[in-house]
Design a protein around this nucleic acid. Structure first.
Lengths: 249, 249
DNA sequence: CGCACTATTGAGTACTCTCAACTAGCGTGG
DNA sequence: CCACGCTAGTTGAGAGTACTCAATAGTGCG
């Protein structure tokens, strides 16, 4: 079932059949959420780890006066950090963007996985560290890039991450977010997002109709975004950490 | 030696004498760095975990055209993420701000610690998760807050974090960063940082002379910053995870 | 067919930037 | 001892970027 997760972790390290079975077993409890709902709210005590199976969600944080910042996006195959339960309460919320199907992995199942499956443990570390790297890049994005660069950068990131879980078709993908959402993620007003998108369309860097995004020339878009893929750590070589002999085929 | 680290981790969970001894043992190799030097550069392969003993450092990332974003500050007692070595190469740099004395903890020592000391393992997780929470809050800071709020927020955070490691005196602390640094951390120009600082001084929210920062009324400053302490997870109750009986006194 | 949400456009405003010059503090060396 | 150079901080003025408010178009669904 958690096919996207397998696909992604498989990029980092080869999982044995037993590893895969264990992951399957841990993610049996599936839940559905409608769009624009909280999966977990600020102040809640985190009880389990959520694995997104289908749909988009996001972390967000709201200031007292209503200003809202989207802190990161969760795409299919993404795990809402493996060890949240070490902290007593959530300092932010996780909400859906579209309808979401997710697996709730109980805390004990995670502890068990990490006790018994060293490769999974490393893979989870990798997943966690990549999420943190993404968070850092967002800091750079918001702090240093112009509006145009910010949007371009976000689109590059989302496209490449979707590609990694097989959610793209050629140079196209679905982008189920509103311009308000894009604004909340990039720290700009919806009006300005709109104008920037038009500028990107004007330069033929993107084609965006409805929820369909096409990036005819990804490298060109990356150039205007000053996008460097390195922070996504897509290189498949967790192998340098493998200590149990050669990989299974 | 790693007295600040102890102090901080002790806030989360009580460490046994053996735990403390193990931490001491792991952090024997001390190195010195001058101000404004790289401890590790982008592209390097991370080999060990750095524990700041004295002085300030920061993570930063630089765009091709020279724009620089400080991504986070490291204060005494801070650990540069426990599991970096899972990733093959650094996607950002860590550099000093002042002279820095740090302990290099070899990768194997970390693995050994986490194998044998469950409380340390949890404490390291906590340290890691708090750093990530800080990173998220920076995202909110850069995305949603105004210049004035951003600077105020950063000063609140630094003061409270310094307090947690005993580096404050009453309502004062040392702030060994230039206005350019503050700008690089908050995504604003040094000129604007300067004007904002003057505004904060004008409202008597801060007193800043040379490298000495005084915050006469922290709550007032927190109010203008829309600062909510929750993301620092200062509450001492990792206890809800303790499984080896009651805490040692 | 109409409501609700999303996207688009226009106009005026405000925040923040850049450029540039000037001041202050500090250490070095003539 | 003072000049010099260096870094850090301060100030002024003009230019942009991005924001707010407000009105107008699409789009989708019941």
């Amino acid at each position: 079932m958690p096919h996207h997760l397998m696909r992604k972790l498989g990029q980092f390290t080869r999982l044995s059949p037993e590893d895969k079975q264990a992951l399957e077993a841990a993610s049996q409890k599936v839940r559905l959420f409608e769009a624009h709902q909280d999966i977990i709210s600020e102040g809640d005590a985190p009880e389990h780890v959520n694995l997104i199976l289908e749909g988009w969600a996001c972390r967000y944080k709201q200031l007292e006066d209503g200003r809202r910042q989207i802190i990161s996006f969760f795409l299919p195959g993404d795990l809402c950090d493996p060890h949240v339960f070490v902290l007593r309460e959530m300092d932010h919320a996780i909400g859906t963007i579209t309808r979401v199907r997710l697996a709730e992995i109980p805390r004990d199942a995670i502890l068990d996985l990490t006790d018994r499956h060293p490769r999974i443990t490393r893979a989870l570390w990798w997943e966690m560290l990549v999420q943190v790297a993404v968070q850092r890049e967002w800091t750079v994005n918001l702090g240093q890039r112009t509006g145009l660069e910010r949007i371009a950068h976000l689109l590059c990131e989302l496209f490449i991450r979707l590609q990694a879980v097989g959610q793209t078709e050629g140079d196209s993908c679905l982008l189920p977010v509103t311009q308000v959402d894009l604004g909340d993620a990039t720290g700009m007003s919806n009006v300005h997002v709109n104008r920037v998108l038009q500028e990107l369309r004007g330069s033929e860097l993107i084609i965006l109709k409805g929820r369909q995004l096409t990036i005819p020339d990804l490298e060109a878009l990356q150039r205007v975004a000053l996008f460097n893929t390195n922070y996504l750590h897509l290189d498949r070589d967790g192998r340098h950490l493998d200590t149990n002999g050669p990989d299974q085929p």
